[in-house]
């Protein structure tokens, strides 16, 4: 951490907090005077699944920053288990726990 001094870390934390809060609060702040087009409101019901998928798919395919589309990638293995359990049982806790157990089992026992 050569280029950023200790004081600048706090400046950075302050700026990150400002940016993050502004993004989350900006629309709420003027909620009464902002109205979204009905088309946009309908499209927004796809927001959470699409955004989250844009995060988790690369996370399991690029665990170390490089494409790891092979059978000894525990992230891919655990991810496929999670998808199967999630589609089958539709239970978040069961999906998380089962896939994590499978992930760690492969990481520690197999590899």
């Amino acid at each position: 951490m050569s280029s950023v001094s200790q004081l600048n870390v706090w400046l950075l934390i302050g700026l990150m907090a400002l940016v993050t809060f502004t993004i989350r609060y900006a629309l709420y702040a003027r909620a009464n005077s902002v109205s979204l087009p009905p088309k946009l409101e309908q499209a927004l019901k796809y927001s959470a699944p699409c955004v989250l998928t844009a995060i988790w798919v690369p996370a399991i395919l690029f665990p170390n920053g490089e494409l790891a589309l092979h059978s000894d990638n525990p992230y891919l293995f655990g991810g496929l288990i999670a998808m199967a359990i999630g589609l089958w049982k539709k239970n978040i806790l069961l999906t998380i726990v089962t896939s994590m157990v499978c992930f760690f089992a492969m990481k520690w026992l197999v590899l």
């Binding site: 796809y46 989250l52 999630g86 589609l87 239970n91 978040i92 896939s99 992930f103 990481k107």
Partner: peptide
């Protein structure tokens, strides 16, 4: 590999939504 927990959580949140063609 504790970071896998995030992917597991997000997958668990997304899968129950996959019940119609547009989604």
């Amino acid at each position: 590999g504790l970071d896998f927990a995030m992917s597991a959580t997000f997958i668990g949140m997304v899968m129950p939504h996959l019940v119609n063609k547009p989604m």
